[in-house]
């Protein structure tokens, strides 16, 4: 396996570690490093250390538990807002672990001076998303911080779900398995980036934020050959697939020409100098399925509005190098790596 992170830090670089920078929240390698060095050592247990999207543990029955914070800016963007995002993100984290969402705990951190109307709109949208996902918010908490200490609304949602019987885990992934993406990538990240950085630009681009539990339940019910699911949020498809290659130690190949992307999304990514493979999705899943189950999985996904454009995009190979390789449209080859951190648009 390639060791990407061996470092001989210079004195200047050590200073990077003394303070939290925005890049630490980017969901990339820097986030991994921060979690691994500051969070896991203090809180580690056999459930948390699996680092799955939901924790699976034994309580009164087999449960799944997950938590996520939402700090998106702007609060409202084409296709959704922070309220819808806060429900869908948490519901999807439960669903990709094979759990049926049961209940959500909600924490709001509001900034002094926030317009009541804005909060009401966000709560309306949050409630509608919860209805769509058939999940209840069962407990919550609200705090307000002073002007300048927050940024409008921050939301944290914790979700608990009933764990399914389906074993979904990187350890289940084997050579020959097929990789499926449930639809066009990068819509959420590009819609938000465009709304934040270039609000004057008109585009038909919309976030894909949606609860996927119904689609996933149908998939798992009908297709026993599904072995792993993940929602490619921050870090995008590259992040999820590079992680999977790294974690399984297997060689994964993706076919660029088979990866669905909308023209408008491609144009915005091109304009902002961002690789769409690195960009967040909030309404898509990556599924790894046994080769003989691939067609059945596609059929099951395509029955759902959120999965109608599902495609097989790659496969797991038997080489044991932990590398994810992209076969480009031109017929070339390159490595896909987990993106670094905060997406920085380029100069020209």
């Amino acid at each position: 396996m390639i060791d990407l992170y061996e470092t001989k830090t210079s004195s200047a670089n050590q200073a990077v570690g003394q303070r939290i920078s925005l890049a630490h929240g980017g969901g990339g390698q820097l986030t991994d490093e921060l979690v691994a060095s500051c969070v896991l050592p203090r809180l580690d247990n056999c459930v948390l250390s699996q680092l799955l999207d939901s924790a699976l543990f034994r309580g009164a029955e087999r449960l799944a538990l997950t938590i996520d914070s939402y700090v998106v800016k702007p609060l409202k963007f084409p296709g959704g807002d922070i309220g819808r995002l806060a429900i869908c993100g948490t519901v999807n984290d439960l669903a990709v672990c094979g759990a049926t969402p049961l209940a959500i705990a909600l924490s709001l951190i509001l900034t002094e001076g926030l317009e009541r109307r804005v909060l009401e709109e966000v709560m309306d949208s949050l409630a509608a998303a919860a209805l769509e996902a058939r999940v209840s918010i069962v407990t919550g908490d609200t705090k307000v911080v002073g002007r300048g200490q927050g940024d409008g609304i921050y939301i944290t949602t914790a979700g608990v779900g009933a764990a399914g019987t389906h074993k979904l885990h990187p350890d289940e992934v084997r050579p020959g398995d097929a990789l499926i993406v449930s639809g066009p990538i990068a819509d959420h990240g590009m819609a938000v980036m465009l709304a934040r950085e270039m609000p004057q630009v008109q585009s038909v681009l919309k976030s894909d934020v949606a609860p996927l539990n119904e689609m996933i339940e149908r998939l798992l019910e009908r297709v026993p050959g599904v072995v792993f699911l993940r929602d490619p949020t921050r870090g995008g498809l590259s992040g999820v697939v590079a992680d999977l290659a790294n974690r399984t130690g297997l060689h994964i190949t993706l076919e660029e020409q088979d990866i669905p992307i909308r023209p408008e999304t491609w144009h915005v990514a091109d304009m902002l100098g961002v690789d769409p493979l690195d960009v967040a999705n909030e309404g898509k899943i990556l599924a790894v399925v046994r080769p003989d189950a691939a067609e059945a999985a596609l059929a099951a996904l395509r029955q759902d509005a959120h999965g109608k454009d599902a495609r097989i995009i790659g496969q797991v190979n038997d080489a044991r190098d932990g590398v994810c390789e992209l076969h480009t449209k031109m017929g070339g080859r390159r490595v896909l790596q987990k993106p670094y951190g905060e997406q920085l648009p380029r100069i020209c």
Partner: peptide, 30 residues
């Protein structure tokens, strides 16, 4: 080793258009 996209020393590793970052990110597989 000391210079990676995560902890870049030289500008060619920092910029997404830099030769070093491009090599680091894409060239290994080739």
């Amino acid at each position: 080793t000391a210079c990676t996209p995560v902890r870049a020393i030289g500008p060619c590793m920092v910029s997404s258009e830099g030769t070093c970052q491009a090599w680091f990110k894409y060239k290994r597989l080739t």
